[in-house]
Design a binder for these strands. Structure first.
Lengths: 347, 347
DNA sequence: CTGAAAGCGCTTACAG
DNA sequence: CTGAAAGCGCTTACAG
């Protein structure tokens, strides 16, 4: 990168002014084809690249989006939640497709992250992704809105939230999974995961669960719910807690696949066969879900589409157009962990 | 972000010159404590952030690293290889720790990526990560070196390679895994994965495999090798191929966990019990490896450390210091998929 | 269609 | 310790 060529070097070599070089390379129609060709050749020869910093400074625009990934500080530090990883892949792809670079930053949920990116001209807009207590998150979102920062977040889509939210239909997903468990002749269905408005996505899944129970004339038994954040360990511990409580259950709906996989391990250790003794369903459809044994029934969130919609709506905001919150459909994936009788296996 | 405050606004508010504002905020010792305090307060009040583009342009430095992630175009588009995902997490963390932002970009292995980042001032240096035919990759690496682009790559560490490479000790890993399979009384050990210098990491693992066989007085039987790139599907197909060939084998060493997991599925479908009929080992220790049934014996690559070393060496290059290629140790993780007799299970 | 010039918001020698 | 000034490399009105 030493002796980097500038637009002046190209101008000199092509025998035109620097302004013309800039126009030609940015594709302005105000340049004759002949001149443009000469300039292109010169740029090629000197291996010239537009300096992004200068260009951005002048245009007051960065051409990059920032992805803020929040991790629960208590989670195992070495592994990122596979669901978010999958979202990350999808967002990266969607940004690239729109010609934007993607800056990635890990943040503690609790930290003062909102100041770091807003207005520092590192990015034209922010994508917020992660897991944590929504209530304490909320005022930061409001600050972002007040400052006019462009951002979209992945999460529960509920009325009265600051800014634009994209999320999947957690309520419908929870209802779908629970209805399926009921159809598999389960009656005592446990719910593993936080079920308070502090964790709105889980809470929606819980509400869906309760709705499906009600649909079938069943009541949600508080003794069948155990808190868990979205890690394998938390799922393991929640299932253990349930077993220790001594309450009977014949199915488990876990608020995430990671929780379900942890529960699966606990159930196995306690000699409860899945799906025979306990039918099991999770949420997310992370790739691991197909590989555990038995393969995990789950509610699929379409991460590919999610990334597209997030980037799309963020770009609308950046262009000053009207952006809108959106809810993506949830899809039930039936696999062996919940199917009794005729043993069907899907991937 | 409208009406963004500049250093001049702060200067005005604090009653000093703009240069002093810049000095104070960058932590220059040439500013009195009293002045610095006033400036800090003013900056706080106006919610001032240094404009990165201007700062970078002036300093001829970007404060960001670029991660180029190569994906095999034939691989399933929706899922990124979990091993690379884990590396991505680790690299992100390491960059943040060093105060650098991380720009992520997906590239086709075959495309003309080397031009995009070299010299465009988007990043101070490049981290190359991915999988593909090394031979066709090589001249691009040489071009990068010629242009003076700072970069490090993750991959096989072999003599005569252009630039700085960080990788794990694939040879030792392959030898370790194979020796373990032999110790478990396997004699006919298949190798699943490309075993040519076009894929140097796999090739090294293959050489380690052959060395362990030789150590035990066994010969590598070409009929026991089947090509596979690193996907579950390829692993499945390679194992099928092996079975169709009708050659006898009592163990499989797969060049990656994904291949091993695919092989596991094929073996199950053909009624071969793991580990009883066929002992199985993989490579990478992706998180899925602990969750398949039986849990997969594998060679762990320390992705956490890998990210640190990659960033560390890249920063050395950027600072103009001497950076060096390095080989990280490989560690055997014994789990149920390979253990005969006393059934031990580790995670 | 092309050129000369201003200016984006900083950092940093230079002068005091 | 502080200020006035130059300049990083572009883009884009302005003038022709």
């Amino acid at each position: 990168m030493k002796g980097k060529a500038t637009s002046f070097d190209i101008a000199h070599l092509a025998g035109v002014s620097q302004s013309t070089v800039s126009r030609a390379l940015r594709g302005s129609p105000l340049v004759s084809e002949e001149t443009r060709r000469r300039i292109r050749a010169a740029a090629e020869e000197l291996n010239y690249k537009v300096d992004k910093n200068a260009s951005n400074l002048r245009r007051q625009h960065t051409g990059t989006l920032a992805l803020l990934l929040f991790e629960d500080p208590t989670a195992d530090d070495s592994h990122i939640n596979p669901f978010f990883l999958s979202m990350l892949g999808s967002i990266t792809r969607a940004s690239a497709q729109q010609g934007y670079d993607l800056l990635i930053s890990f943040q503690q949920f609790s930290r003062d992250w909102h100041a770091d990116f807003a207005g520092s001209q590192k990015a034209d807009g922010l994508i917020l992704l992660g897991y944590g207590d929504y209530q304490s998150h909320r005022d930061k979102l409001e600050k972002l809105v007040a400052q006019g920062t462009r951002f979209v977040r992945w999460g529960a889509v509920l009325p009265g939230q600051p800014g634009v939210s994209i999320g999947c239909d957690n309520f419908a997903g929870g209802r779908l999974a629970t209805a399926h468990l009921i159809a598999q002749h389960s009656r005592r269905i446990a719910f593993l995961g936080d079920a308070t408005p502090h964790y709105p996505e889980f809470h929606e899944r819980y509400r869906g669960y309760a709705a499906a129970l009600a649909d079938a004339g069943l009541a949600a038994d508080p003794a069948l719910q155990a808190d868990a954040e979205t890690t394998e360990r938390a799922g393991y511990e929640a299932a253990e807690l349930l077993i220790e409580r001594g309450v009977a259950f014949d199915a488990v709906f876990a608020a995430s696949d990671l929780i379900a996989i942890g529960a699966l391990r606990a159930l196995a250790e306690h000699g409860r066969a899945v799906p025979r003794d306990v039918a099991l369903a999770g949420f997310d459809d992370i790739s691991m879900a197909s590989f555990v044994n038995p393969a995990l029934t789950t509610v699929r969130q379409d991460t590919g589409r999610a990334g597209e919609v997030l980037v799309e709506q963020l770009l609308r905001e950046i262009r000053g157009e009207h952006a809108e919150s959106a809810m993506l459909p949830a899809e039930l994936k039936v696999r062996a962990s919940s199917v009794r009788g005729a043993r069907k296996r899907a991937r």
